[in-house]
Nucleic acid binder design. Structure first.
Lengths: 146, 146
DNA sequence: GCGGGAGGTGGGAAAAAGTGGGAACAATTA
DNA sequence: TAATTGTTCCCACTTTTTCCCACCTCCCGC
């Protein structure tokens, strides 16, 4: 999958356009949408979702509360969604509300999956975390020479 | 890659001319553009980006907040861009806004990669950090004989 | 000083991507 | 059952992007 930040818009019918550049990377016309960590949605191509979810389920037991929590939080909300002829997907209302998506959205490509953010939440997230990011980068720089 | 500071301009179609001197150093006609640290964009030749990003992604999990932060801040914004026949690249709007690029830009050559700054931000950055630079130089001088 | 070439700039036109909304169909409620 | 609301599919329009070409200007050799 490609990386990149792309602006995209959600219309009144709750359809989100996947930018053409990212669309070409999704084999087939189906993606899995779920709640992400932080205020965003995660969007996986089916193969990647299979790997991720099976790993997650495989390494946890439903007899443990933490495992149940993780499963409810990440696995349960997952829905398969079809990409229409114009390259859009319909965002289910529970997920739309979770990520507080308005008209202005942002899609992030992260190699194995994508994230969908409301533009305002994403800017807020980046601003709040810029200091942490610089610290993390310093630390990383001390370990690895990049 | 060559070093040097070059003034260059961004036109109304968001195309940035890579000075001919630097262009010759980029094998092939593709570069990777991403958010840098501080107010600038980073511009890597594909091979260098591969090394850098793989080092970065290699040992991280999307279930950890620091890893997500670094991926969102450095990996997600990265886009492959082609150099056109006239030696220009198109700067994606999210990146252009991040670095506050206006017509007057500056490209810095830094051996392994390049940086793109708005001329005004760069001047401000240098002025603000001159004192810190002198300190850093003292410290380094104590360790290494240069 | 003049001609030629390389580097740099701008903009037109075709193609591609994105947007909105109508109509048909399904579902839900009174 | 009729009326209303919500979905889905499709089409037409608009905007953006891409590709290409023409021209400008500066520098160098003659």
């Amino acid at each position: 999958m490609i990386t990149g930040e792309f602006r995209c818009s959600l219309d009144e019918k709750a359809r989100l356009l996947i930018p053409a550049r990212m669309r070409t990377e999704v084999l087939g016309n189906v993606v899995i949408l779920t709640r992400g960590v932080e205020n965003c949605l995660w969007l996986f191509p089916p193969e990647e979702w299979k790997i991720f979810s099976e790993n997650l389920v495989g390494s946890t037991s439903l007899l443990q509360s933490q495992a149940r929590l993780i499963q409810r939080r990440l696995i349960a909300p997952a829905q398969e969604t079809e990409i229409d002829k114009a390259g859009r997907i319909v965002i289910p209302s529970t997920l739309r509300e979770y990520a507080e998506l308005k008209k202005e959205c942002l899609i992030l490509g992260l190699k194995k999956y994508m994230e969908v953010w409301s533009e305002t939440s994403y800017q807020a997230y980046l601003q709040e975390n810029e200091a942490k990011f610089k610290e993390a980068a310093e630390e990383l720089g001390a370990k690895v020479s990049l």
